[in-house]
Amino acid sequence: MRMNRPCGTAVATMALAMAGLTVPATAAAPVTGPDATFLKTIHQGNLTEIATAKDAQKHSTSTCVKQVADMFVRDHTKFDTQVVALARSKGITLSSKAGTAQQKQLATLKPLHGKRDYNRVWLQGQDMSHRQALALIDKEVSSGKSAKTRALARGARPTVALHLQAVSGGVCHTVKGRTGTRS
């Protein structure tokens, strides 16, 4: 199956280098408020998406889920790179440690490794987390104070929407417990 990939600036906007990301404050007075909250929250979301997608690459029984997971690792890694760089430029410290949501999602998936239900549970978790990410992005676009942070959110939106479409029936779907590819 060939995945349709987002093109143009949407792909260029999705980013992150995941290893060891505790970003030191570089500005005299770190930025606080909704823009800082957005960057911290979307960073944790990216870390979660990357970790759960890597888990799916190893433990899913579905080729389609594995292909979607490949896309998620690539896109969320690229997006988070931009998030980290923008946070650093604003003096915002981001955690490199797994958040509660990441730990919970991985704990839910672990007993299902290699089982048919894994695919359904992974897709449902991705559906929920991408809906939350879109809501967060939309809030930042409409009410963020920083033009750069709003632009980052606006640029990420098409790819996150594509991800949601992929997990909510656009690419992989579940029929009687089997995950397959839409024709």
Results as ranks from 00 to 15, higher is better:
5 R>D: 12
5 R>T: 10
5 R>F: 15
8 G>D: 03
9 T>K: 10
9 T>I: 04
9 T>E: 13
18 M>W: 03
20 G>W: 04
21 L>H: 02
24 P>E: 14
28 A>W: 11
40 K>C: 07
47 L>W: 01
49 E>T: 01
50 I>N: 03
50 I>C: 02
52 T>K: 04
56 A>Y: 07
62 S>C: 13
63 T>L: 09
65 V>R: 09
69 A>R: 14
74 R>M: 13
74 R>D: 07
74 R>H: 06
79 F>A: 15
80 D>Y: 12
84 V>T: 11
88 R>P: 00
97 K>I: 01
98 A>L: 10
99 G>D: 12
100 T>M: 11
102 Q>S: 14
102 Q>N: 12
103 Q>T: 14
106 L>P: 15
107 A>D: 12
107 A>M: 11
108 T>S: 13
109 L>R: 08
112 L>F: 02
121 V>T: 14
124 Q>H: 11
124 Q>E: 10
127 D>V: 14
128 M>C: 03
128 M>D: 15
131 R>P: 09
135 A>V: 07
136 L>V: 05
138 D>I: 02
139 K>A: 11
139 K>H: 05
140 E>N: 05
142 S>H: 09
144 G>Y: 00
145 K>W: 01
146 S>N: 14
150 R>N: 06
153 A>C: 14
153 A>M: 12
154 R>V: 00
154 R>I: 00
156 A>H: 09
165 Q>W: 15
166 A>P: 00
167 V>P: 06
171 V>D: 07
175 V>M: 05
175 V>N: 06
176 K>Q: 14
178 R>T: 02
181 T>Y: 11
181 T>W: 09
181 T>D: 10
